[in-house]
């Protein structure tokens, strides 16, 4: 999984894979490859949801902190 992948793009790709699989028009090897890719995307998205921590910061503090 590339590091630039965002949750949004991973989720979109996952849903496209599901659509393709549900159409039943894929070859067997392709179906297996798609399923594996889908599982990978699912784990990536789940990881994103679980790993993100919330944060509230005040701009003034941040700007002052950035001063030398």
């Amino acid at each position: 999984m590339s590091s630039e992948q965002t949750f949004e793009s991973a989720q979109r790709e996952l849903e496209q894979i599901v659509q393709r699989l549900e159409s039943g028009e894929t070859g067997l090897d392709e179906a297996i490859a798609l399923w594996e890719r889908g599982e990978e995307l699912y784990r990536f998205c789940l990881g994103k949801l679980d790993s993100a921590h919330g944060k509230i910061e005040e701009l003034a503090t941040r700007v002052e902190a950035a001063k030398p």
Binding site: Q11, L14, E22, G24, I32, W35, Y42
Partner: peptide
């Protein structure tokens, strides 16, 4: 996300 994963399993089985 869980719906998509369910669809993924169903889709693969159906294929």
């Amino acid at each position: 996300l869980e719906r998509a994963r369910g669809g993924l399993g169903r889709g693969a089985r159906r294929s």
